[in-house]
């Protein structure tokens, strides 16, 4: 029982470190390299947790992490947990319909859920959608899709290491 708890704590710590690394990349590194796009690595993290961990553990981590993300966003309070929780539930539902271990599925889901996230953001704030903005969103969603399998792989690697 205690060893199980210890393993869970270790796994959560590892995923938290990965989360902090993704925050650093999203807030400090990517904007310097490409300023017109935003790659959402957190979607990959959620998908990785959906595959590798139990529903309850992943759900709680999604809520806590998305709440902490509010510190790095001008989004109104509660909107980020709402959006990422919706994405988490969507991905959990997709688990029964799509083979999530497939890299192509992960790319498609990463892209689709990025766009869904933007649509949900639109519920909270009336933004002006220009052609340039749509192009940025499309580029960001494709790049998010491409990076999603990488983050999923890292989550699975970190979470499974102790179980092996």
């Amino acid at each position: 029982m205690s060893s199980e708890l210890g393993r869970l704590t270790t796994n959560i710590t590892k995923v938290t470190c990965l989360f902090l690394a993704t925050v650093t990349m999203e807030t400090s590194l990517f904007p310097v390299i490409i300023d017109t796009v935003r790659i959402d690595l957190f979607i990959g993290l959620i998908l990785g947790m959906v595959i590798a961990t139990s529903f309850g553990t992943a759900g709680i981590l999604v809520i806590v992490f998305s709440f902490l993300l509010q510190a790095f966003s001008g989004a109104s309070l509660g909107s980020l947990p709402f959006i990422y929780l919706t994405i988490f539930l969507g991905l959990t539902a997709a688990k029964n319909m799509v083979y999530l271990e497939n890299t192509i599925s992960q790319m498609v889901l990463g892209t689709a859920f990025y766009v869904l996230g933007i649509v949900l953001f639109r519920l909270f704030i009336p933004i002006h959608i220009s052609l340039g903005f749509v192009a940025s969103i499309l580029a960001s969603s494709v790049l998010t899709g491409l990076t999603t399998p990488l983050i999923v792989y890292m989550v699975r690697m970190l979470w499974r290491e102790d179980e092996a």
Partner: peptide, 14 residues
């Protein structure tokens, strides 16, 4: 500046 907004919609800096 040491961090930018994580979303595309909102424009904040840290």
């Amino acid at each position: 500046v040491f961090a930018q907004d994580i979303s595309m919609i909102f424009k904040t800096l840290v």
